[in-house]
Design a protein around this nucleic acid. Structure first.
Lengths: 202, 202
DNA sequence: CGGCGTTTTGAGAGAGCTCAACATCGGTGG
DNA sequence: CCACCGATGTTGAGCTCTCTCAAAACGCCG
C-alpha cells in the first residue's frame, strides 16, 4: 500500500522532516495548505469536529502512509491532523511538488497512477469490510495477498497488526486461523501462511 | 462521490457507450486495456477468480461510478469486470484521455485532484466501516454528510440503498433510525434527516 | 531468571443478522 | 375510481457470531 517510488528524487529531497509529540496538531481545518505529508513513525489521525465538540475520525495514518494528497489542489485543509502518538512526518511542499509535476510530465503521471492504484486498493478493502464472517474475510485477504504462486502469504507484522488491518479483534483472528488450520485449509509457519486446498476442490 | 466534471468535454464526447446483459463480461484479467469505464445504469462487479474457481469480488460499481482508472497506466487489466445486472457503461478510450492530458495540463491536474479526493473519501469510508455499532456508524454518516448548515442530510436514494452504503442490513438501519428518532436525536421527513441535538450537549 | 508483549484458549453477553409477517406507497389496468 | 401488485418501509423474535473480559502459555530480551 505504500509505494513512494512515484516521487522524483529531487522532490523527495525537498521534504521537510517534522517531529510531533502525542496530541500535537499537524494542521487544522482551514489552515492554508503547505503540502501533503508522509508518516514516518507513529500515527497521525485526520478528523473533523462537529458542532458538539465530538471528534469524528476520518482516517488514521501509520508509517509509510501519506495524508492530505488532495491538499495539493486545495487552498486550505479540509480537516484536522493530530498526532495520535509521538510521530515523525515528512512534509512534501506543495510548491516544490507541483513545480516538479509541471516540469516533468512523467512524474505527474506517476503520481496520478499511484493514486489510481490506491483507489483500487481502497475499494477492495471496503469490499473486504463488507464481509461479516471472520472466516470469509480472512480468506478474502489470504487469496488477495497470496504471492505470485498463489500458495502462501508472507506476514509483514504481528498477527495483532493483521487483525487490526482486517478489522477483527486479535482473539477472533487467532480463533479463525486455528479453525482454518484444523480444517486443513491453511498451514502456518515461519511468518507465512500456506494455502492448502480450498473448500470446493471441484 | 461521483463528480465527473473533471473530464474535458471533448473527452467525454469521445466516450463510447456499451450495453451489457446481466452476466456479460466487460473485460477479463489480462485483456489489453482499452481505457476506463463509467457505469451509467446497472451494476458491474470487478472480481478475480482464484485457482479453485471461486470468484473474489473486489468492488461493485453502480451508476455514476468509474472503474479501472488505473488501466490508463497499465497495459492489461488486473481483474475481471462482469455485469451484475443489465447495464450501460461508457468507455473512455485510453488513447483519447491520455492525449487530452498531454495537451491540457489542467485536465490532467483535474483528474489527479479527483483521484486524490476519492482516496480521501474512500479512506473515510473505511474508517466508518471500522465502527461496529450501527448507531455510531449512522451518526458518523449523518454528521459527515450534513449539509453546509450541519443540520440536515438529504437522502439521495431509498433507505435500503443507504443501508447498503453503510454496510448494514436494511432492518438494522430502520431500527436504528427509529431509535434515534425516539431518542429525539433526529427527525425524518421529506427525504431528509434533520439532526436535532447531539447526545452530549456539553 | 524475570518481565513484557504476543499468542492462545475459555466463557459469557450483546448486537446485528436472518427469517417472517405486516404496513405503506406508487403505479397499472380494469 | 378502485383493486391489485411490487417494492419499500417497519416491527417482532430468535440465533449466531463476534466482541469483551479473563487467564494462561509462549517467546524474546535484558
Amino acid at each position: 500500500m505504500s509505494d513512494r517510488d512515484w516521487l522524483p528524487a529531487h522532490v523527495r529531497a525537498a521534504a521537510k522532516k517534522r517531529t510531533l509529540k502525542a496530541g500535537e496538531t499537524l494542521f487544522r481545518l482551514g489552515d492554508k495548505t503547505e503540502g501533503f505529508y508522509e508518516v514516518v513513525t507513529g500515527r497521525v489521525r485526520m478528523s473533523r469536529v462537529d458542532r458538539s465538540d465530538h471528534e469524528l475520525v476520518l482516517f488514521v495514518a501509520g508509517p509509510g502512509e501519506t495524508i492530505a494528497e488532495a491538499s495539493l489542489y486545495a487552498p486550505a485543509y479540509h480537516c484536522d491532523a493530530i498526532a495520535g502518538s509521538d510521530a515523525q512526518v515528512l512534509l512534501y511542499p506543495k510548491r516544490a511538488v507541483l513545480a516538479a509535476f509541471a516540469r516533468d510530465a512523467t512524474a505527474a503521471q506517476a503520481f496520478t497512477a499511484m493514486l489510481a492504484r490506491q483507489v483500487m486498493n481502497l475499494r477492495t478493502r471496503i469490499e473486504q469490510r463488507n464481509i461479516r464472517s471472520a472466516r470469509e474475510r480472512l480468506r478474502h485477504f489470504l487469496i488477495l495477498n497470496a504471492g505470485a504462486d498463489g500458495r502462501s502469504v508472507a506476514l509483514r507484522g504481528t498477527l495483532k497488526e493483521l487483525a487490526a488491518e482486517l478489522g477483527l479483534t486479535h482473539e477472533a483472528l487467532y480463533r479463525t486461523l486455528a479453525a482454518l488450520e484444523r480444517a486443513g485449509e491453511i498451514r502456518r509457519g515461519g511468518g507465512r501462511i500456506m494455502l492448502l486446498r480450498s473448500r470446493k476442490t471441484v
